[in-house]
Amino acid sequence: MTGTTGETWATDETWFPPCRPVSAPPLVLDADAVQLFCLPHAGAGASAYRDWPDALAPGIEVIPVQLPGRESRHREPARRSAAELVGELTGPLASRAGPDYALFGHSMGALLSYELAHALSALGKPPRHLFVSGLGGPHLPFVGPLLHEKTDAELITAVAAMEGTSAEVLAVPELVELLLPLLRADLTVWETYEPRPRASLRVPVPITALGGRQDPGVGLDRLGAWQELTSAGFRAEVFDGGHFYHHDAPDEVAAVVRRTLLEPSPVR
């Protein structure tokens, strides 16, 4: 694909690694399957979506995104700004995406998905739909403590309270030593994000915002504020659970994605 300044981008497969076991039988996808690029939350990698390809096939092809600094890219330094990550990922994603694709991001991944929707729309290749999960509208004033500035002990306590990292992992010092720098870098991405000017907040893409009813950091008012960031349709879907509600309700979340992308008249 050629960008607006004439540069040619090659697909970078490091961004889109296979996340299903090699021993698993190949997925059978519809010829017109919608691509769904999935971006992970802070501290996580592409494997956060390892169960999604089977759950959403054959109508949807799930393509997890692997960000630098984790899993198969653990030798690379983690990035510390949304602008840097989006700048690096826009080209490979634009090249990998077909004519019919959507974006899904949870927490930090939701922020990156929103900025990618802007960048890809500017290239004349907007996604069909944007799913943002576990994050309030990024144009709202930041609330809460700056976790990336906390001590290691304080950060571990905060992570444990979110219930997104198993107690078994947090009990192993060697794993915590590997996790903390990545988590701190990812939290910096979110906590130092500078919202767009008001005139350029909206994307020409329908948005579905998903969240947990008991998420202490993302109230329903902040989740609903995503409506202000689209010039197309909007819908909010709320589930029982906390910040990682989708771990407890995978079938319900998959049903929302499937209904939105595969029904004859998705939200517009």
Results as ranks from 00 to 15, higher is better:
L27M: 06
F104K: 00
L135S: 08
E237M: 12
E71L: 14
P58Y: 06
T14C: 05
H148W: 05
T151I: 11
D51W: 04
H139I: 10
H129L: 11
E263T: 05
T2M: 06
V205T: 12
I156S: 07
Y245R: 15
L261V: 01
G43N: 08
L146Y: 09
A254C: 14
E163M: 12
A199W: 11
G144C: 06
A57K: 14
P92I: 01
L220S: 14
A83V: 10
P58F: 06
E13P: 01
L147V: 04
A97M: 02
R79H: 02
R184A: 00
E237A: 15
A185N: 03
L220N: 14
T151G: 00
Y101E: 03
E174V: 02
P216I: 08
L130H: 09
Q35S: 00
V169T: 03
L155Y: 13
W226H: 07
L170C: 14
F142L: 02
E115P: 03
H148P: 00
F239P: 11
V172S: 10
R196F: 12
E149N: 11
T192C: 04
L112N: 04
T5F: 14
Y114M: 04
A48K: 15
L180C: 12
V132M: 05
V256N: 13
P197Y: 02
L223T: 07
P266E: 12
T5S: 04
S81P: 09
A82H: 06
P126N: 12
L262M: 10
P127F: 01
L85S: 10
A119I: 07
A232L: 11
P53L: 01
S166C: 03
L182S: 06
L223H: 00
P138L: 01
R268M: 11
I207Q: 13
A119S: 13
L201S: 09
T5A: 02
A83T: 11
L229H: 15
L187C: 03
T192L: 00
V203F: 06
P127H: 04
D100P: 01
E71F: 11
R259P: 05
V132T: 08
A236W: 14
A199L: 03
E13H: 00
P141H: 04
P204C: 08
A83I: 05
V28C: 03
A48W: 07
D215N: 10
E263L: 00
Q66M: 08
E71K: 02
R196Y: 15
L103G: 01
P40C: 06
P58R: 13
V256A: 14
F142T: 00
V172Y: 13
D51E: 14
V253F: 04
F234L: 05
A55L: 08
E154W: 06
L130T: 07
L116F: 06
L116C: 02
P138F: 11
Y245E: 08
E228W: 09
P264M: 02
A167P: 04
T4H: 07
K150E: 02
T157P: 03
L178D: 14
A161I: 11
T8L: 05
G3C: 03
H139Y: 06
P26C: 09
W52Q: 11
E84R: 15
A225M: 05
Y114A: 02
G136T: 13
A185F: 07
P18A: 15
P68I: 10
G212P: 11
E252V: 02
V132D: 08
E163S: 13
P21V: 03
A46P: 10
S200Y: 03
V205Y: 12
P181R: 13
S231W: 14
Y49C: 09
V22C: 07
P250I: 13
